[in-house]
Amino acid sequence: MMQKKLQVEAIQHGSVIDHIPAQQGVKILKFFKFTQTNEKITIGLNLSTHNGKSKDLIKVENTFISDEQANQLALFAPNATINQIKDFKVVNKFPVQLPSSFIGVLACPNSNCISHNEPVKTRFYVNNKSVLKLKCHYCEKSFQRSFFTELD
């Protein structure tokens, strides 16, 4: 039987985030502060897929992505899947789901919004029609995803 060669080395325990759109992998590493952990991380950038498009992929040893983290992934990779690995086997696999709101992860694009200089967490409500829009809890303005920057 012909063995399929993995593009990124397998991990024993941990999480695999798959189907990340190309160019988003590094952003996700930074956002989740995976670069500050001592765990082994392997990444693949611009990997080829069977539909001809490129994708990124992240494998993190000894780390299991929480539901909250999985929801936040939707900001970068709405079609990503998360695989939980134990002893080199996939024991759980689930798609990223858009939450109803994002709390404390994005800055409001409206520079006159009160959330910028007060002791509150930002909050945006998801309006998922044809295009993903997020509405600010405070200033009530809606913006497309591309207008947002992530908070540090």
Partner: peptide, 13 residues
């Protein structure tokens, strides 16, 4: 009355 958007919502919290 406040010049910034969202000020009243924030105040209520």
């Amino acid at each position: 009355r406040h010049p910034q958007e969202g000020a009243a919502r924030l105040a209520s919290e």
